[in-house]
Design a protein around this nucleic acid. Structure first.
Lengths: 215, 215
DNA sequence: TTAACATTCCAGCAGTTACTAGAATGATTG
DNA sequence: CAATCATTCTAGTAACTGCTGGAATGTTAA
C-alpha cells in the first residue's frame, strides 16, 4: 500500500471533524440541550444564552459534522440529534471529563446540594423504590421535555411551577429531583426549595441521556 | 442559583478540554497508536510521521487533558493512555464518524481489500472458529504490541516478517488478519500478500481497542 | 564526559475560530 | 402584504492552532 501516509491523514482528518464539533463549550451545551428533545434555534439560543445568529452558526457546524438534523415545522426549524449515538457520545465525553479533570470535579462539588449530594445508591434500587412508591421521582424540566422522554415513574412539575404546586408532593416520602443532567442547575434549585419547605429531597445528577446511555 | 450562567460556562468549558484533545487528526493518530500499548515519543513520532518536537507538543496537550500519562524507563519516556475509558472513547468517536460521515465511508471503501472486504460475520462465530482451529487469527503488528494485548487465539507474525515466515501458515484454512484497527493498513497489505501467495485471507477491521470496547 | 532522549522557550507563519454587528435573503404563516 | 423565523454574507477583532526552525535545558545511561 503506497500513499499510506496520505490515506491515513485523510482518515484521521475525517474523524477529527467529530472531535472538532465537540471542542467548543457552546456546541457541547447545544448538544446537551438537544439530548432533551428537538428544539428550535430560538429556544436553543435562549437556553444557551447566546444570540440566534451565533447559535445558528454553531448548529451549522454540528450539521456539517452530521451530528444534528433539521426539520421544518411551519415557521420554525427544529433541530434534533442525528441519532442516539450522538447522545451516547456526549454522555461518554462528559463522563470521562468528570473522571479525569480535577477542575471539573471541584466545580461540580461546589454546586452539589448542601449539606451533601445524596446520590441514590444505584439505578436498580431507585427504580425499585419508585415502582413501590417509596420515593417520588420528580422531573423539573419544562413539560415538553418531560413529554419527549422521562425517567421511569417520574412525575412532571416544571421548576417554574414548583412553588405553586408543592401541595401535590407528599412530605412523608423522599423526593428525587432530576433535570437535564449534571450541568443543569434546575434540580439543584428544586431540591433547595423543597428542603426549605420541609420536604426530604434528593438530587439525582443523571438526566434522560445519562439514563439511556449504554453502560 | 445565581451565577448559573458562569457556572455552566465553566462546566462546559472543562468538558470541551476533552473535545479539543480529540479535535486534531495527529492527536487522534497518537491516541490510536497508544491503544496498542505504551510507546516512546520517538516511536510515536516515527509512526505518525511527524517530528519528535511536534509529537512532544501534541502529547503535552493530551497530558494536560489528562488523557495520557508518562513513565520513565531509563533514557526513554513511555506514554500510555490514562485508562481504558480513553481507548473506549476513541473507539466510540471513530465508530460514530464511520456511521455518519460519507467521506469517511468512501475513503474506507477504497482501502477495503479487493475483491470485497470479507468481514467475519460476528465476534462469536469468529471466536468459535478460532477456538476450533478452523481459522487462523493472525496479528501482523510488531511483536511488542502483540505481547501487550492481542485477540483470543491470535498468532503473531509481524508484517515485516510475513514473507519469510509464510511456511508457518496453513493453506487449507482461512487466515483472518488484523492490525491496529480500521485506520491501520498493515492487515490490508498482509491480506494482499497472502492472497497472492495462494492463501485464503480475510481482513478483520477491528483491533484490540475495538475488540475490548464496551458495546 | 558524551550521547541519546525529551522537553521547553523563542520567534514566526499561515490558517482557523469565536464572537459581534449590520444588512440582505429566503421560507412560511396569517 | 406584513410579521416571524432562520440563514447567509460581509467585515472586523482578538485569540488560538498547527507547524517549523533554532537554541537551550534537563535526565539518564554508558
Amino acid at each position: 500500500m503506497k500513499n499510506a501516509r496520505k490515506v491515513k491523514d485523510l482518515l484521521y482528518e475525517q474523524v477529527a471533524r467529530i472531535g472538532k464539533a465537540f471542542s467548543s463549550p457552546k456546541r457541547l451545551e447545544l448538544i446537551d440541550l438537544l439530548c432533551q428533545g428537538e428544539k428550535t434555534v430560538q429556544t436553543l439560543a435562549h437556553e444557551a444564552s447566546i444570540s440566534v445568529k451565533l447559535a445558528s452558526s454553531h448548529l451549522r457546524e454540528l450539521r456539517m459534522a452530521q451530528l444534528v438534523e433539521t426539520e421544518r415545522q411551519g415557521k420554525n426549524i427544529f433541530y434534533h440529534l442525528a441519532n442516539k449515538s450522538v447522545a451516547d457520545l456526549w454522555v461518554q465525553v462528559h463522563t470521562l471529563a468528570e473522571e479525569r479533570l480535577v477542575d471539573l470535579q471541584l466545580a461540580l462539588q461546589k454546586i452539589a446540594t448542601q449539606p451533601d449530594d445524596l446520590v441514590p445508591s444505584d439505578r436498580e434500587s431507585l427504580l425499585k423504590a419508585a415502582r413501590k412508591g417509596e420515593v417520588v421521582v420528580l422531573d423539573v424540566r419544562p413539560t415538553e421535555e418531560y413529554l419527549n422522554a422521562h425517567l421511569p415513574f417520574a412525575r412532571s412539575i416544571p421548576l417554574e411551577e414548583l412553588r405553586q404546586r408543592l401541595a401535590e408532593l407528599p412530605k412523608d416520602r423522599s423526593i428525587v429531583a432530576y433535570c437535564r443532567g449534571p450541568y443543569c442547575l434546575m434540580a439543584v434549585d428544586a431540591v433547595e426549595l423543597l428542603r426549605k419547605e420541609g420536604y426530604s429531597a434528593i438530587h439525582l445528577r443523571e438526566g434522560v441521556a445519562e439514563w439511556a446511555a449504554v453502560k
